[in-house]
Amino acid sequence: MPRTMAGKVLAVALMAVLALVGCADDSRDGAGKPRISAYLDGNLELGEVEALSLDAGDQVHLAFRFTDADGAPVAGERLAVLSRAGNLITHPAPRTDADGFARTRLLAQRGGQDTLEISGPGEARGELRLRVGGEEADQHGDHQVGEGELPERDDVLSWRRLGALKTWEEEDLLAAEFPDDILALEGQTVRVQGFMMPLEQGDRQRHFLLSASTPSCFYCAPGGPESVVEVKTDRGLAFTFDALTLEGELELLDPNEMGMFYRLKDARPAD
């Protein structure tokens, strides 16, 4: 199970990083422009954080502050949070509060170097560098299947392909540009493997999400919208914690109010 960083906040590794990178000051590049800075949620007194050293399985709550060119907080705007290496972001499009803070949670799953890219309206940009180590991490930087993830198979549509899309905000919704190989699959029968995340009550599910990794919380998606597929089936499937392989018609959603990019229609078990 992932280890939650509460009071200690990875004291030794984190404080070492803070000592190296220091806190933000207005003299560095980006002053006088809209900017996004990263903090540890619940530990704002530590100041701005530019880098974190984590172990695979660690969780950390993050707060990103969006300020305008004069340094004033910007409220009510959505930010887009992306992990270049594919580490899990539970809320990839958080909205800023009255103090300009937008909050999310990071689950470190993939070893090696990573960068979180945070973007907002206009030219607002920010980055948070990560180093993920530990027994589950790949020290060479190549992705290895971690706990709760599924190995890739040749007979199913991989999550790597589903995740290779560009996203942006459009009228308060996330819009997407799909790669050509995914566009060619729209309306076709495909197979997808993943874990069931129920959207309804009852033993049998007709409308649920299929996730790339085991849900860590049943009140939020375990990753970004590119890591889940909305599933609809007339048959109804029994709830299970085990991995499923489903077959159905692929529908591309751009955008929709549920924040999903993919839907599997008339789904049925493929195994």
Rank of each mutant, 00 (worst) to 15 (best):
P2S: 15
P2I: 14
R3E: 14
T4F: 00
V9M: 10
V9F: 05
V9N: 10
V12L: 07
A16W: 00
A19T: 10
L20A: 15
V21I: 04
C23K: 09
K33R: 10
S37N: 11
L40I: 15
G42E: 08
N43F: 02
L46D: 07
G47W: 00
L52A: 08
G57A: 13
Q59N: 11
F66I: 09
A72V: 02
V74Y: 00
G76V: 07
L79E: 09
S83E: 04
A85R: 15
A85G: 08
P94E: 07
D97E: 06
D99R: 11
G100D: 02
T104Q: 03
S119R: 14
L128S: 04
L128D: 03
L130M: 08
G133Y: 05
G134Y: 07
G134P: 08
H143Y: 02
Q144I: 15
R153P: 03
D154W: 05
W159A: 03
A175W: 02
I182R: 00
A184Q: 12
L185R: 14
G187Q: 05
V192Q: 02
F195M: 10
M196Y: 02
P198F: 08
E200F: 05
S211N: 15
S211V: 14
P215Y: 01
P215D: 03
F218D: 09
C220W: 03
C220G: 07
E226F: 00
V229G: 06
V229W: 02
V229D: 04
L237H: 01
F239I: 13
F239Y: 14
T240G: 05
L244M: 14
L244Q: 12
T245Q: 11
G248A: 06
G248C: 06
E249S: 07
L250W: 05
E251Q: 12
P255F: 05
M258V: 01
D266S: 13
R268M: 04
